[in-house]
């Protein structure tokens, strides 16, 4: 069955088609949620809520862009909506250099470790870092998603990079000394 047919079947609430879509994209979307959330439990909640929204709105998909991209947007939106509900305080804009370099041996850093470091970032830093670095959004887009100024987005990103650099280096030095 083609993907388009599968999507149409999902729109008709076909259970089998829904299960297939979940099989195909579940892992990617769950990974996305892990990056955007503070821990596994929160990621799971976001993932479930996002997937329910995907199936409820699948009839609105217009077959023009990528289906995976459409699902990812819904997932990220689910997370952002929760963030907006929490109404996190704005953080004062700071001027921090654009590029952050870290001295690292790639074999020493595991995926789990990097994921954990992202999850530990303060909420807004985590969102901005994900949106900009991992999902390729511009500061302008991020500013509108999060209802903040573009400058705030930039400074948040720099702060996030800086925190991550310090943490990576700290972990690595722990590993060496340990």
């Amino acid at each position: 069955m083609s993907l388009n047919k599968l999507i149409k079947q999902c729109a008709l609430s076909d259970k089998k088609a829904q299960a297939t879509v979940y099989e195909l994209f579940g892992s990617k979307l769950f990974a996305l949620c892990l990056k955007y959330s503070t821990n596994k439990q929160e990621a799971q909640d976001n993932f479930q809520d996002g997937f329910i929204t995907i199936f409820n709105k699948i009839g609105q998909f217009n077959f023009k862009g990528s289906f995976e991209g459409w699902m990812k947007r819904i997932m990220v939106n689910t997370v952002l909506q929760k963030y907006r509900k929490k109404n996190v305080l704005n953080i004062v804009t700071e001027n921090i250099p654009d590029e952050v370099i870290v001295d690292v041996d790639e074999d020493e850093v595991s995926l789990d470790m990097l994921l954990k470091l992202i999850q530990e970032l303060p909420e807004r830093y985590r969102l901005v870092f994900n949106l900009y670095v991992l999902d390729g959004h511009t500061h302008k887009e991020i500013a509108s998603f999060l209802n903040i100024a573009e400058g705030t987005s930039k400074s948040n990103l720099s702060r996030a990079r800086f925190i991550l650099k310090e943490k990576v280096e700290a972990v690595l030095s722990d590993q060496i000394s340990g």
Binding site: G26, S27, K28, L29, F30, A31, L34, K35, Q44, F47, Q48, F51, E99, V100, I101, V102, D103, V104, D105, E106, V109, L111, L114, L115, I118, F129, V133, L134, R161, L164, K165, V168
Partner: peptide, 25 residues
Amino acid sequence: RENKNIDRLFQEKLKDFEVSPPIKS
């Protein structure tokens, strides 16, 4: 060891990774 842009480090490791969701989801 090498000097690495922090963005690159995260992108390379995390961009396309997949994790199976919990069964009960």
